[in-house]
């Protein structure tokens, strides 16, 4: 099985572990991620100004390039997923926009490409995943952190319930870990405020991490490279403000999946985690 794949810029730089562990996981279930031959930056955050159509060109150009046999493209980065899917939705609402954008593209786009997140793919291929599991995660307690961009706006993304989603917990359950209750799982991590207002980002991340820890989480799993960065890299700064704070490791969902599928350690990308997950993984006999 070959699947069209759009990694996005960050998966080639700061989120390499997401890329390598995802490739390895798909290999382990007998599928291959077929990276688009030509791809560009999606433009990051989706523009909310209704009179700005220029920002639709980048995402739609990517989708035009992705048009092929399977008419779906797998997108693991939450920001790319959100941007591509929202751009696609606008075309469905306003076909006139498609005509305007097509005038600016090398090849015209028909508006029919489906943007799929790996968690959706896993949800739809439960039995396949289950049959390939090699390592028992022994019920390691994980807090599933959705963040914003997979869920909202729900009307456009149709990913899961925007206030109490369950797709991530079902995934974690499927691969043998235990999802803990995590009331703040859909609350924002501070996103790009980390650039301009780091103090605000530090406070919201502290609240999130404490909430996960208070509910017994031993690690947190997420899908978004920006959430990952804020949750992982800001812990150092949190410790300076809140002396009692204890670190908690952060994983990409693909790293946990890769472990369960028996992927070799070099493809997990664990060395890039700022808060080392080695101790907790050893405790559960997973390294």
């Amino acid at each position: 099985m070959k699947l069209s794949y759009y990694p996005g810029c960050t998966l080639y730089t700061k989120a390499k572990p997401l890329n390598t562990s995802l490739h390895a996981s798909f290999r382990a279930i007998g599928a291959e991620l077929n990276e688009l031959a030509h791809w560009y930056c999606c433009g990051t955050t989706f523009t909310l100004a209704r009179d700005n159509r220029m920002s639709l060109i980048a995402p739609l150009r990517i989708l035009a390039k992705a048009q092929g046999e399977d008419s779906m493209v797998l997108v693991p980065c939450s920001i790319c997923y959100n941007t591509l899917k929202r751009a696609n939705y606008i075309l469905k609402q306003d076909p006139e926009v498609l005509d305007i954008i097509n005038e600016h593209l090398e090849e015209s786009y028909d508006g029919n490409e489906k943007v799929v997140h790996p968690l959706e793919f896993f949800r739809d291929n439960k039995e396949l995943i289950k049959s390939k599991l090699k390592k028992n995660l022994n019920g390691i307690k994980l807090a599933c952190y959705y963040g914003c961009l997979l869920l909202r706006p729900q009307k456009e993304l149709q990913f899961d319930d925007p206030e109490s989603p369950t797709i991530f917990e079902a995934f974690v359950n499927l691969i043998g870990a235990t999802p803990v209750d995590f009331p703040l799982k859909v609350e924002c991590c501070g996103s790009y405020l980390v650039v301009n207002s780091p103090d605000a980002a530090i406070e919201v991340v502290y609240k999130l991490l404490r909430n996960a820890q208070g509910n017994g989480a031993e690690a947190i799993v997420t899908s978004c490279p920006l959430c990952y960065y804020n949750l992982d890299a800001l812990q150092n700064k949190i410790k300076k403000v809140h002396a009692e704070f204890k670190e908690i490791p952060i994983f990409y969902f693909s790293q946990i999946l890769a472990i369960a599928l028996g992927v070799e350690e070099k493809n997990l990308g664990l060395e890039q985690n700022k808060v080392s997950p080695v101790n907790i993984l050893r405790e559960y006999n997973l390294l």
């Binding site: 996005g8 810029c9 960050t10 730089t13 700061k14 989120a15 930056c41 433009g43 990051t44 955050t45 523009t47 980065c77 920001i79 996103s191 790009y192 980390v194 650039v195 301009n196 490279p225 920006l226 960065y229 890299a233």
Partner: peptide
């Protein structure tokens, strides 16, 4: 130091908003 450490999408998002 932050620029080198942060993922590009954090910077790109901030630049597009600010």
């Amino acid at each position: 130091e932050f620029m080198l450490d942060a993922p590009p999408l954090a910077l790109m998002s901030a630049f597009s908003k600010y």
